[in-house]
Amino acid sequence: MPAHEGRALYAAAARAARLGLPLLEIGSYCGRSTLLLAAAARRAGTVVVTVDHHRGSEEQQPGQEYHDPRLLDATDPRRMDTLPVLRRTVAAAGLEEHVVAVVGASPRVAAALGGGGGGRFGLVFVDGGHTDTHATADYESWAPQLAEGGLLAIHDVFPDPAAGGQAPYRVWRRALASGAFTEDAACDSLRVLRRIGQGI
């Protein structure tokens, strides 16, 4: 995430944290955005729950464009394992008290943590897998758990297919079309919507 988008994410998290509810991140990877959310959570006296299977997304697998061999699992070099890096990143920033890291597939975690009950989170940040299947599952699993007045942030929203994948863009369009959200802020590929009603 570029620095200017990171500043916009922090600003959104700080606004959302005023609701006094936990913040939620889908896709922590190595923890850069987790630190931004956790800093906002700390200021508000709450936490960020960050959900990731820590095996890397499609483009980070061996042989793919964004593969980083330093993130291979020490016990199985055919697989990624970003969890140790996330833990070190959060610890080095002194934010462990404000981060709840949950390891697992996003929809399964959402179901295990209580399903579709509304009002549990002040912010839902969707930045997990960027296929239609993954992005849609993240939205359908977590957006219903967003409090009214809370913020839905979606990363890598590219209206122009030449600029990037389209799954996050389609999720953003779907959220707007639902009537449950209104635009709150935008910074390049980061889009922030405010929940104003039901019917996600």
Rank of each mutant, 00 (worst) to 15 (best):
P2N: 15
L9W: 00
A11S: 13
A12N: 00
R15C: 08
R18C: 09
P22Q: 11
E25A: 11
S28D: 05
L35I: 12
A38G: 05
A40H: 03
A41T: 08
R43H: 11
T46N: 02
V47G: 01
V48Y: 00
V49S: 01
R55N: 04
S57R: 07
E58N: 04
Q60T: 12
Q60D: 10
G63R: 02
G63S: 01
D76E: 04
P77K: 06
R78F: 04
D81A: 03
D81Q: 15
L83K: 11
R88G: 07
R88Y: 02
V90P: 00
G94H: 01
E96P: 00
V102A: 00
V103Y: 02
A105W: 08
A105F: 10
S106A: 14
R108C: 02
A110D: 00
A111N: 05
G114E: 04
G115M: 04
G116C: 04
G118Q: 15
F121V: 03
G122I: 12
D127E: 14
G128T: 13
G129V: 01
H130L: 07
T133R: 15
H134L: 12
D138V: 08
D138P: 15
E140R: 15
W142K: 05
L146C: 06
G150N: 01
L152K: 06
V157W: 00
P159V: 08
A163F: 06
G164Y: 07
G165L: 13
P168C: 13
P168I: 14
R170F: 07
A177Q: 11
S178A: 11
S178C: 13
S178V: 10
G179W: 01
A180G: 12
T182Q: 03
A185G: 08
A186N: 11
D188I: 06
R194V: 11
R195Y: 07
G199N: 10
I200S: 00
